[in-house]
Amino acid sequence: MKSFTYERPSSPSEAAAAVARTPNAKFIAGGTNLLDLMKLQIETPAHLVDVNGLGLDTIEPTPEGGLRVGALVRNTDLAADARVRKDYAVLSRALLAGASGQLRNKATTAGNLLQRTRCPYFYDTAQACNKRQPGSGCSALDGVSRQLAVIGGSEACIATHPGDMAVAMRLLDANVETVDAKGSSRKIPMAEFHRLPGDRPEIDTTLKAGELITAVTLPKPLGGTHVYRKVRDRASYAYALVSVAAVLQPDGTGRAAFGGVSHKPWRVEAAEGDLPRGAKAVTDKAFAGAKPTHQNAYKLKLAERTLMAAIHEARA
């Protein structure tokens, strides 16, 4: 870990300004991923702007009938919020399926969106990785790739977004609210927040330099039955091989998004129309054009069967 200076600003725009004016500065909130990566010098900020004192930790109703979740609401609190449990159960479930109790107590809403991949080559600084060191190559393509992306990847990168929360937020059509150093704010739809690696895998999201996430807004509740089904090798405290977030209505229609399969939460709206026809119809369409490695081809079948399990659970 390189040395860094540290400050605690007192407002979101001041925080954004601090990051904008200081070379190689980063925000730190929960720190559970950033510090992990700093210890390995995968992240090497020279200045940390601690946003934990900024408030931004409340969950408020929106005029549209949804919820506005502060960027610093901890995963534990978001999952436990009575309104989220009642109206956005898929989000509660996704959060509770992630990490451990200790990590959820620290991890924040914004930070969770920004967590970086768990690809083993990203984590090993002696190995080539385009995401960590642009232009160095991708060791995963012909390396250990059992956990990695089957769709939306590129010749440069087959990393996955490792999170659960973002999959549920993508399903719910949440919006990410940000502020920049000039104090201007914008809303980024979740569909556009995470990007595909293409030839710039070092860039995970569409956030601009110095832009600070202040909140995530959830549209008004969808009703229906909410399911988050996460499949992993051990029963808890593990990243998804495949996960499915689904909201299903009594008439069999609904939405479905997939985790553990791509550089971003994977949702193909055009495939959701096939939900009444069953899981296979949806995954055939949603995963058309998938390019798995021989180590992770199983994820295609697993996505289908996990969606099947989710539909089954919703009907039960």
Partner: peptide, 11 residues
Amino acid sequence: AALAAVPSAAG
């Protein structure tokens, strides 16, 4: 090169 503490993507 990687062991030589080459600057990361961000910085």
